[in-house]
């Protein structure tokens, strides 16, 4: 390839990268600007101020929402890892009646569009009396078909001799899973953990249906309600609220980008 074409390629890629990164930089800088300055193109504010954050923090329980998000996403992730591995272990390594049907059902679940089950799930939550509870945000996500199929695939590759010798030593199935399979399956577990956590952290439609109490809201929901309800007032304030949601994700992404890309692209999960 000629030097000239190579130069054009790099300029093109740099411009493309800029369109993905610059909006976030502009957002970060806008949150530090006083209302009159938000429209300016300059990234460095003339008179930097934390007013937007102060207003945002005072008007809605964002600290609480941050804790709610951490609680819900962590619980869901841990549950999906533990329950998902137990299920995947049984489906991959144990023979029991109905195993093939369970495998087929798990694949079928992936084909059902979420829109079909959204309303009946919502009515189920209402009937269980779970509106405005953490259970509504957590329980429907305790198992994840994608995670189970991924872990099952991984568990199938582990040699049977390891299981046989462990059983000879008198180990139970759960001990075999957590002491022999888990250390070997670390890469697969990391992939599942990232896409599960991100899916839960970014979810907004489901919380909008089942939670109305501000104190139970996760960050994306509170942010949406806040920006829509006019609570934000100015652009700078609603962008400041968005920053609370974005900063932890971008920080984690900077250190673990390879795993993020592998995990989220592999699972087909989008926020």
């Amino acid at each position: 390839m000629s030097k000239f074409i190579r130069a054009i390629l790099y300029v093109g890629l740099a411009l493309a990268a800029l369109t993905f990164i610059y909006p976030f930089l502009w957002m970060a800088s806008s949150t530090l600007k006083p209302p009159g300055e938000v429209g300016s193109l300059a990234l460095i504010p003339d008179r930097a101020t934390l007013d937007n954050y102060r207003i945002m923090w005072g008007r809605a329980p964002f600290g609480r929402a941050l804790l709610n998000s951490v609680l819900v996403a962590s619980t869901v992730t841990i549950a999906v890892l533990i329950f998902g591995s137990i299920t995947a272990y049984a489906m991959a390594r144990l023979t029991f009646p109905g195993k093939r049907a369970l495998n087929a059902a798990t694949m079928a679940v992936l084909l059902v569009p979420g829109q079909l089950t959204l309303i009946p799930l919502y009515t189920l939550i209402v009937q269980l009396g779970w509106i405005d509870t953490y259970a509504a945000l957590i329980v429907p996500y305790l198992f994840n078909a994608t995670a189970i199929l991924m872990l099952r695939q991984f568990f199938l590759q582990i040699p049977q001799s390891l299981i046989d010798s462990a059983r000879m030593d008198g180990m139970g199935e759960l001990r075999i899973l957590f002491t022999i399979f888990w250390p070997l399956a670390r890469p697969a577990l990391a992939i599942v953990a990232i896409f599960t956590f991100m899916g839960s952290w970014n979810e907004v439609l489901w919380p909008l249906l089942v939670v109305r109490d501000q104190h139970i809201m996760t960050l994306p929901q509170l942010l949406t309600v806040f920006a829509l309800g006019g609570g934000a007032g100015t652009l700078g304030v609603s962008l400041a609220a968005a920053m609370v949601l974005v900063v932890p994700v971008v920080a984690a992404y900077m250190f673990l980008q390879r795993y993020f890309i592998e995990s989220m692209a592999g699972a087909g999960v989008k926020g």
Binding site: A16, A17, F20, I21, P23, F24, M27, M198, W201, N202, V204, P220, Q221, L223, T224, A227, S238, L239, A241, A242, L245, V246, V249, V250, Y253, Q257, F260, I261, M264, A265, K270, G271
Partner: peptide, 16 residues
């Protein structure tokens, strides 16, 4: 860089 918006919540992207 191209993947960055994929990891961001749709709610944030809409507000941004």
């Amino acid at each position: 860089a191209f993947f960055l918006p994929v990891v961001i919540s749709g709610a944030v992207v809409a507000i941004l």
